[in-house]
Nucleic acid binder design. Structure first.
Lengths: 219, 219
DNA sequence: AGCGTAATCAAGTATTCACTTGACTAGTTG
DNA sequence: CAACTAGTCAAGTGAATACTTGATTACGCT
């Protein structure tokens, strides 16, 4: 009996692991770490069908990692709490020490050697000192919460908005997290026009989790 | 192209999740968190066949969570590093906030309401003040590392050794971690004989990870 | 060399998983 | 009420998983 109960306990732990055992579900968690989203928005972000996305979300819900609520016509999903955010952060951290992640990250992100980083603390100190902060995430994520004073520059609009940056102002770009390309692309594009641009270490969820100030602009 | 590379990156993260997606592998990680072990020892601990255990270990190795080395005739496995220990700890923590774990834990561990805990700090302070520390794990795990001054009382021997405890000495028991039954059983058995017994919060890996002193006695 | 032990490999099977397609349900709007 | 939108459910298919059994390999001992 005891040995069965022991196995059952570890099976419960494994249920949490299972939730992260699929790449699409990992993507979902990463997007949900930015804030609450509808099924439709999530499906688009992870380039999957509606039905498939819904099913993945239900797997996550069954394992207790996400919760959902109805808002009129749509169903909004969100991460279940702080421990889940912490787990996702730790998991990515552990994955970094694994060979395959380095290769996959390099293929996706390119060489980041020349990208300069700004620490959260430095950015927090300089927020009201005329630094220009670009939030390079989809609008929905910006609206769910962002660094105070940041302007929303969705990934597709970076090129179009390079010229609106006044001379002599430093730009700090951020997006979803350490493995998010959008901020890299923005910094490279700005650097190509000789703008002093750096990238925030990690991304918005880490900023929020660090207890730093957050602004919201949803409707 | 980029979208494929993105999927590939998240697939790499999922590979780490996949390693934890099976109850037997979770058990293996939990045992390995105590220290290096042979395949044989691990197979026995998780009550699985030799071949199956070996295969699970190779899954863990492929995902980078464990490494192995040959020692003469046997192959010894160990966790790949600090980030992996941190991940396992965080995963269990997150799992605690999930409904199923509570039920499974209760079925396995019973009602822990009356079990008193000792914090790591308190035990560390009192180590040389005549407190008796019982390490209630299999001998192999004790030998791989234990709290200084602790005596090894393997799970099966608890009953036999209840009487060797001198009167008026407080006993602190510990085993693998928060979800390990052995220490609970020892404390209950000691309490049944009116010995002042408490349980260390969590277990040995958490003690080691907290940077507290560790003794080893292997040969 | 020959034997024993520790571990891995290979092949087979029942189960689970990821994704698709098409039907269905819950709310909202005209 | 019908028409529409957002989401879920159900069934099916090919691929991956977990475990078994029976070789096969690697090392140590005599």
């Amino acid at each position: 009996m005891t040995s069965k109960a022991k196995a059952a306990l570890y099976d419960q732990f494994a249920l949490v692991g299972k939730a992260f055992s699929n790449g699409r579900r990992a993507e979902l968690v990463d997007v949900l770490a930015q804030g609450e989203r509808s099924v439709e928005g999530l499906a688009e972000q992870i380039s999957q069908s509606f039905a498939n996305t819904s099913q993945h979300l239900q797997v996550l819900a069954r394992s207790g990692l996400v919760t959902s609520r109805r808002d009129g016509n749509r169903v909004l999903y969100r991460l279940a709490g702080e421990p889940v955010e912490a787990l996702w952060e730790t998991l990515r951290g552990a994955a970094e020490s694994v060979a395959g992640v380095h290769r996959a990250a390099e293929d996706y992100l390119g060489n980041r050697g020349e990208l300069e980083l700004v620490s959260r603390d430095e950015l927090a100190r300089r927020l009201d000192e005329g630094v220009l902060v670009w939030d390079v995430r989809p609008v929905a994520e910006f609206e769910a919460g962002h660094v105070p004073g940041a302007v929303s520059v969705p990934p597709g609009e970076v090129q179009r908005r390079l010229d609106e940056v006044p001379d002599g102002v430093e730009i700090v770009a951020y997006c979803r997290g350490r493995f998010c390309v959008f901020a890299d692309e923005a910094v490279r594009a700005l650097a190509g026009r000789n703008r002093p641009a750096r990238r925030l270490e990690d991304g918005f969820p880490e900023w929020r989790r660090a207890g730093l100030p957050v602004a919201a602009s949803s409707g």
